[in-house]
Write a protein that binds this DNA or RNA. Structure first.
Length: 860
RNA sequence: GCCUGGGUGGCGGAAUUGGUAGACGCAAGGGACUUAAAAUCCCUCGAUCCUUGAGAUCGUGAGAGUUCGAUUCUCUCCCCAGGCACCA
């Protein structure tokens, strides 16, 4: 019987089946162990791209595998549907954001369904829907109540194009991370979430997340940036005022010879008030403020400052220290003032040289003594304290504590802890986000919307023109309201929330997406499903999204909504999908289908192959998943994504590699069709007969493959090697001499092998394996079947190869039975004729035996 | 500049705890089948050398070190990617 592999027919058939049967829908089942698998949900930008395909394929393999292992698997999907692109589309094309967003969701949902992912679609959610964000507004009220949400004035990064505030983290090289416009500084009243209240716990749990990649935890720790140091008080030389400084280097206090203040610090103008230099200083400050952006983006920056005609005293030496305003000191870290130690800080050194300031060496280089007169750069390594009073002779790091204590005893300092992490600014002057439930009353001031008045619904009838300011602020029907307190006239808050707020709890909502009672999260469901057992997503979210989600989880825990401390037990960060770029001299970057035989299809010029970079629309080095599905089918797309590299590494796109994956699926398909008539009614081998030759070898390979594939998926998500193992099994099957029609035992061994191949491949290529299972007469549906087990005694090798080395170099090999004892093996090694050549006339110093692997003979 | 990863054949990658480097796939070459081509099936495939062998030497970015033995551990350096950026 001839039957061709036609992916589209098979895939349509099984996708329909899964959907009708609701094969992947789940409910809480206390009798079954749960497994919550989650991939980072997509922003509905228009169409799915290869990054989505890879992310969701990796997740789907794990979900299907865990289901076959007997877990109750929750595998949901939804839409992170608030955000700027929808608003930009509205401005550019006049499409209402809700319409644009929902149409994109429809398109992408169809595309995801074509990939055959095993989602519980009944749990689908979209964060722009009122029934989602109304609970977020409730949480906001609770946060406001206990001070976790607060408002304060702050200078912020302002993007004039997006007309919105950007977090520091959202500014890239001085440009808006979304649109690339240069960022200005503006002053606004802003809403903040007090993430810093949880800073210690967030840091502490970095060491309690063994299932997270080390480098993500390192990045989070660095982001939090805890540093132990010292607040030091410097008395002013000519008044009773003081200047406070934070430092981690109090060991260098005896070498502090001048004081630096951030140019924009208010103290700068205070100190110079009424002095002749006041105007010069003001000019300088204005200049630095303007230079600010440039300063942050340039590689090399001249350190400069201006003397403020003021002095303070070194708190331990009482020496007068001139005070300078400087361009390289930041106003919002520490106190905005820095004690300068030019001998042991390179920036201070350059500054001192420029302005002819005093240098005192206080840490001596143990290898060669330092001389302040001749040194050409700061000495920043460890050493022995000198010129430091009673601390002379101590190792500088060991003196940190004693010097801090000394300062404390003088009343001129105390030990402190500083963090780099700042509170999370969530205000956005944008339309397409969740409204902040607050009103402003002329009499009562800022008043929270009362819980019974929630939700504050985002109005649909908004004109988006792109003109400055918040679109909501111009909509009087939204703005004008009554005060919940005095019932007088009031105005609504028109800022909306950062979309990172929605993505900080969507994984909770997936546990109970239809729960409609306060607080929108069903404790029973959360207790069963949370935490997420495996979270999968791009490395680009290593800090912000993950840190915010951790914070939000701890906060909800303290509100009594949830019982877990951390949302994600295990985290897998997958690499990017990359492809070479192609350029035509005439037409710039080209899409793959604009190139034929190395030439531009428009002008015929030779194209240049550029370097391999992350797939992006701007470089046009993209592959459309839809085209791939059309040409090869979803199963091939899935297999290639998994086979080309392990998940955590970047994946380099290769059209030929895709062909290879397609060929392999065909190769499996062909041998099954080929054997079909002989094999259909045959039961898989039951182990009751002794086998030999090809059949024995095949059966051994089957059991070894089950062992290998199981551990590759279970222990380390290395699907590429799992697929390799199945390829080897298929190769072995091809090499077996075909058993005669009447040879029932032989056919039963073949049948066992085929069953194994089909089941092991099922999580990877679910459609074609389901079809093959049906053709071959398998019981039930693969989506309900158990993962196969292997027989260790069948998988075990009877004969093993022992490598023989002489002085660590491979010289020979011997075949021995697996249970051969050490002495016999050493004896055979020594008597091996190729080994004798190397040992003749030499003394054998020792013999090293590594069980089941090798013998190393050391000779002299 | 700092932090974090990484560097293995013509290419993607494998080697899981310090123990036979290069599994599997792609590309390439050869053979079978075919009137022919495609497809398919089978074989070869790190480099160099010669005496063509169950051969020798070299070989995991470079150099050193530890070890009987290093792709794996340590140090120095080079290159690539990502993140952060004057954080005192």
């Amino acid at each position: 019987m001839e039957r061709k592999y036609i992916p589209s027919e098979i895939e349509d058939k099984w996708q329909k089946y899964w959907e009708e049967e609701k094969s992947f829908n789940v409910t809480e089942d206390p009798g079954k162990e749960k497994y919550y698998l989650l991939e980072m949900f997509p922003y509905p930008s228009g169409k799915i791209h290869m990054g989505h395909v890879r992310n969701y394929t990796i997740g789907d393999v794990v979900a299907r595998y865990k289901k076959m292992k007997g877990y109750n698997v929750l595998h949901p999907i939804g839409w992170d549907s608030f955000g700027m692109p929808a608003e930009n589309a509205a401005i550019d094309h006049g499409v209402p954001p809700a319409k644009w967003t929902n149409e994109n969701i429809d398109t992408m949902k169809k595309q995801l369904k074509k990939m055959g992912f095993s989602y519980d679609w009944d749990r689908e959610l979209s964060t722009c829907e009122v029934k989602y964000y109304k609970w977020e507004q409730l949480f906001f009220l609770w946060m406001l109540d206990n001070g976790l949400a607060y408002k304060r004035g702050a200078t912020v990064n302002w993007c004039s194009k997006c007309q919105t505030v950007l977090a520091n983290e959202q500014v890239e090289a001085g440009l808006c991370w979304r649109c690339g416009t240069e960022v200005d500084e503006e002053y606004f009243e802003q809403w903040f979430f007090q993430i810093t209240r949880y800073v210690e716990e967030l840091l502490e749990y970095c060491d309690k997340l063994p299932g997270w990649p080390e480098r993500v935890l390192t990045m989070q720790k660095n982001w939090i940036g805890k540093s132990h140091g010292c607040e030091i008080v410097f008395p002013m030389a000519d008044s009773d005022d003081v200047i406070k400084v934070f430092t981690t280097r109090q060991d260098t206090i005896f070498g502090a010879t001048f004081m630096l203040i951030a140019a924009e610090h208010p103290l700068v103008m205070e100190l110079t008030k009424g002095k002749p230099i006041e105007q010069d200083v003001r000019n300088y400050v204005e200049r630095v403020k303007k230079q600010d952006k440039l300063m942050r983006t340039s590689d090399y920056y001249e350190k400069e400052g201006i003397f403020l005609d003021a002095y303070c005293l070194n708190p331990v030496t009482e020496q007068r220290m001139p005070i300078y305003a400087a361009n390289f000191v930041l106003a919002d870290y520490g106190t905005g003032c820095v004690m300068a130690v030019p001998t042991h800080d390179q920036r201070d050194f350059e500054f001192a040289k420029k302005y002819g300031l005093e240098l005192i060496v206080v840490i001596d280089n143990p290898d060669s003594s330092l001389d302040a007169e001749t040194m050409t750069e700061a000495y920043i390594d460890e050493g022995i304290l000198i010129n430091s009073g009673q601390f002379n002779g101590m190792e500088n790091l060991k003196a940190l504590d004693s010097i801090a204590e000394h300062l404390e005893s003088l009343g001129r300092g105390r030990k402190t802890i500083e963090y780099r992490l700042r509170d999370w600014g969530i205000s956005r002057q944008r339309y397409w986000g969740a409204p902040i439930p607050v009103v402003y009353c002329e009499k009562c001031g800022m008043v929270p919307v009362s819980e019974s008045d929630l939700p504050v619904i985002l109005p649909a009838d908004v004109a988006l023109t792109g003109a400055g300011g918040s679109p909501l602020a111009r909509l009087s029907s939204f703005v004008e309201t009554v005060c919940p307190n005095c019932e007088g006239p009031a105005k609504r808050e028109t800022d909306t929330m950062d979309t990172f707020v929605e993505s900080s709890w969507y994984f909770d909502r997936f546990c109970c997406p239809h729960f409609d009672e306060k607080p929108g999260l069903d404790k029973k469901s959360l207790d069963y499903w949370m935490p997420v057992d495996q979270y999968i997503g791009g490395i680009e979210h290593a800090i912000l999204h993950l840190l915010y989600s951790r914070f939000y989880t701890k906060m909800l825990r303290d509100f009594g909504v949830i019982d877990v401390d951390e949302p994600f037990t295990n985290l897998l960060t997958q690499g990017m999908v990359c492809k070479e770029t192609m350029r035509c001299k005439e037409h710039g970057y080209l899409y793959p289908d604009e190139v034929q035989d190395g030439k531009c299809t428009r002008c015929g010029l030779e194209i240049n192959i550029g370097k391999t970079e992350k797939m992006s629309k701007s470089l046009k080095n993209v592959v459309d998943p839809e085209y791939l599905i059309q040409k090869y089918g979803a199963d091939t797309a899935r297999m290639f994504c998994l086979f080309a590299s392990p998940p955590e590494k970047d994946l380099e796109w290769s059209d030929q590699g895709v062909d290879g994956s397609f060929r392999f699926i065909n190769r499996v398909w062909r041998i099954i069709i080929d054997y079909l008539d002989d094999i259909k009614g045959i039961e898989p081998f039951d182990g009751t007969v002794d086998l030999d030759g090809d059949l024995k070898k095949l059966r051994k390979k089957v059991h070894q493959t089950i062992r290998k594939v199981t551990s590759d998926i279970e222990d380390r998500f290395h699907f590429n090697t799992a697929i390799s193992a199945v390829m080897e099994l298929v190769n072995t099957l091809y090499q077996v001499k075909r058993p005669d029609k009447a040879h029932a035992t032989g056919l039963s061994v073949v049948k066992e092998a085929m069953n194994a191949i089909i089941i092991l491949l099922n999580p990877i290529v679910p459609h074609v394996t389901e079809e093959m299972w049906e053709i071959i007469g398998g019981q039930g549906r693969l989506s309900d079947i158990s993962w196969p087990t292997y027989d260790e005694s069948v998988a075990a090798e009877e004969e093993i190869t022992i490598a023989i080395q002489v002085n660590g170099k491979l010289r020979s090999r011997v075949q021995v039975s697996a249970d051969e004892d050490e002495d016999r093996i050493k004896e055979r090694a020594l008597n091996d004729e190729r080994i004798v050549k190397y040992t003749e006339g030499k003394t054998i110093v020792k013999k090293i035996y590594v069980p089941k692997k090798l013998v190393n003979i050391v000779v002299k």
